[in-house]
Amino acid sequence: MAGVVLQVVLVGLGSPLLVGVMRQVRARLEGRAGAGIWQPWRDLRKLMRRQPITPAGTGWMFRAAPLLLPGTALVVASVVPLVTTASPLDGVADLFAVTALLTLGSVALALAGLDTGTAFGGMGASREVTVLALVEPTILLSVFALSVPAGSTNLGDIVTAAAEHPLSLISPVSLLAAVALVIVSIAETGRIPVDNPATHLELTMIHEAMTLEYAGLDLALIEWASAMRLSLLLGLLAGLFAPWGIATAGAGPLALLVAAVVIALKVTVLGGLLAASEVFMAKLRLFRIPELLAGSFLMALLAVAASYFLA
């Protein structure tokens, strides 16, 4: 129980920091001073003080999305094995449930974007759903491929099995699944080369187009949720492919603390790598994104196939 609380707190408080670190890495690599790693928190604090306004004519969907998005992210944060594999919500720590929860958040935001009735909102929603349609099956398939050796779709069991047999991590299954998951994580969190979180260019934006009409507390919630989703997916990657240091059931408080430090380190390193690679990459043209995602889908499918053939 303590582990889960620690995990949720870590994700909730640490996610904006992760975004700050990534921006700072980018800034330094690009030769700028950067705003410091606390800037996302300062932004959130500023937004929270402002009054949320809703455009005229929008319905309940527009108001529900800023609650659903962080809500689902927090539930996922409580079940995904980041700090500990022993979650009291163990039954929900199923891979399908986690994927469905993440999708629920994305769909809510897409519907909210449509609800505004503006051109940008609808465009962003349609692009988001296009990406989503290829991302979700890929996540499902690649984690499913990893679940075959463990014999269970429970994320905790998968991570435990991987930690017990580290040799199985250098197999084609995890190689292919890792490639697929990295690509879809980038797409899902709206990073380069799929989407650029730093611009509001109407030709290319996906995620930002849907949040244009939000202000104040609502915007803060959405930004916070996006940061959490990013750290959750990076944490999931770290847990699945480098499962060392994660506390198992019945671990003492010290082990939990160590695990928390380890996961924070792993996610920070991953985030730093991601930010560094973004500096050297150009954004893909929109019509080539399905190509990239189809590629990752194929990798995931091959991973599933390989987990059966080569088992």
Binding site: L167, S168, I170, S171, P172, V173, L175, L176, V179, E291, G295, L298, M299, L302, A306, L310
Partner: peptide, 24 residues
Amino acid sequence: EAIYVQLLYLACGAFLLTGVLVLW
């Protein structure tokens, strides 16, 4: 035996991955 199978499959995985990436 275990390491042999592991290495063999790793080589196969690389073989497959490079083949598929050609399409891309």
